[in-house]
Design a protein around this nucleic acid. Sequence first.
DNA 1: TCTGGGGTCCTAGGACCC
DNA 2: TCTGGGGTCCTAGGACCC
Length: 426
Amino acid sequence: MMRLIAHLDMDAFYASVELLRYPELRGRVVVIGGGRRHQPDEAIDPTNGRVTRTFHTLHGYTGRGVITTATYEARALGLHSAQGMMKAAVLAPDAILLPVDFDAYRNYSRLFKAAVREIAPTIEDRGIDEIYIDLTDVVGPEPPSRPPWAAEDGANGVLDMTPKIAEADEPSRECWSRARDLAGSLKDAVRAATGLTCSIAVAPNKLLAKIASELDKPDGLTMLRASDIPARIWPLPARKINGIGPKANVKLDGLGIRTIGELAAADPAWLSEHFGANYGAWLHAVAHGRDEREVVTHSEPKSISRELTFERDLHAQRDREELSRIFTDLCTGVSEDLQRKGYAGRTIGLKLRYDNFSTVTRDQTIAWPTQDAYLIRRTAGGCLKRVALDRRIRLLGVRVGGLVPSDSMVAASGSEAREPTPSLFD
DNA sequence: TCTGGGGTCCTAGGACCC
DNA sequence: TCTGGGGTCCTAGGACCC
């Protein structure tokens, strides 16, 4: 069944929201990230009553923050998301640094999604700044189709009976043109609702739409047919495929495969030998642009977690009190998140990252789902007793999985006596 | 100059049950 | 009293995504 799937991606989302707030920064090198300490200083000029803002720059930044989003001007200097800000400060010390304001971004996220939903209701959330949209039903049915072989009889009147599979698989010119107009309307609606630009691609499936939405960024509109795959998709690096990450990319590179086209040409059996049957078959399929995944309009969370990277690595004994306080705060935070969102879970997990960046996890499943901070703390505390504490620690995390809606929960807690908070890290 | 925080999914072994 | 074979749950780690 032929589908028309769009991928919509907001352009440099967090940074663009900040530029709405601070229009004077438009055109400047700006990065978003780090802690809360980089709020611009505001002063009122007594002579004219105007607000002057002084922004922090990356110059002299110390800490473990990473860039969440960089403006396009910043990207041109080599700054990018997930980059450590210490490193970014070396590349661009004069870059303006703004703190992350998730509440504001969530707000704009709701606005753009609502605007899209007005036009095309079948949307799949892929985080705060992107969505998939199934346009198939919005674009409407194909015009009454002629049998593909009856399209053009030869001048001599001989009927060509060769089935034209490839063409029959493609949308008609009418549908394609309606889909393009629709994508344009979606961009207009998003801009009207938020003042922000986005990039959209329309393609036969999610995989191709996702790749294609990057082709014309920012403020792009890309239409991609299956027949465009060899010319427009195959020359791209394999890493552009959603699901080929850094590790798989290095491995592919070592095997001499750099582009999606080279991946498409690889023998599927050979791919399976190197990557396992599942991933190998998947690599082969996606390189040929095949993807049957539906646009999923509703999903339930599987886990809720909180974690914190410390400003400095902490020692299990010497920093026991601080660790214990952070640990309790994380458990309290997870508990509050569970209650606010209406979930409880049975599997309590602990995550610990050592100073050498190696990470361990421990989890324990309890008899009944909980959202209780104390029970989470006690269970995660038990997990902590099962990990080595002979190295400094840089990150601590707490997770609750196996979620069920809390209104479906049998009330089980409350009768338990509250012991004093167990002593940990000793 | 070491690398955030929130998630999902997959793999693989062992327990346990039928 | 030589060990089959599913199915499901639990646990740990890791890749990947936004």
